[in-house]
């Protein structure tokens, strides 16, 4: 196996830092959700709004999938099956 280049090592370090930031933001999101005290289900992520603002490179399907997993981890109700197709490209 060839030795890792210095640029790859730098990218790996950047990815590790971004992953730590993502984890920190997800924990912060969960803490904020815990402040809702009305006893109802946790609000779901406003994915359609996120998709309108997104310019990729993740596809709409991938973004929906990621936020579906976040909603599930945060205890939000899951969407009904058979809704809008999730394969259309981002605007």
């Amino acid at each position: 196996m060839p030795p890792e280049s210095s640029s790859d090592a730098g990218l790996r370090a950047q990815l590790a830092t971004l992953d730590r930031s993502l984890a920190a933001l997800l924990h912060e999101r969960a803490r904020l959700l815990a402040d809702f005290r009305d006893g109802g289900p946790a609000p779901r992520a406003a994915v359609e709004d996120l998709l309108r603002r997104s310019q990729g490179p993740l596809s709409a399907r991938d973004l929906r999938s990621v936020f579906g997993a976040i909603d599930a981890a945060c205890g939000a109700p899951q969407p009904q099956q058979g809704g809008r197709a999730d394969t259309e490209p981002l605007p």
Partner: peptide
């Protein structure tokens, strides 16, 4: 502030009890 605190390894303080 919540976002930036999180990515700098901190968090926003919880709201005081109502």
């Amino acid at each position: 502030a919540r976002v930036i605190a999180a990515v700098t390894g901190r968090g926003l303080h919880a709201l005081p009890a109502s």
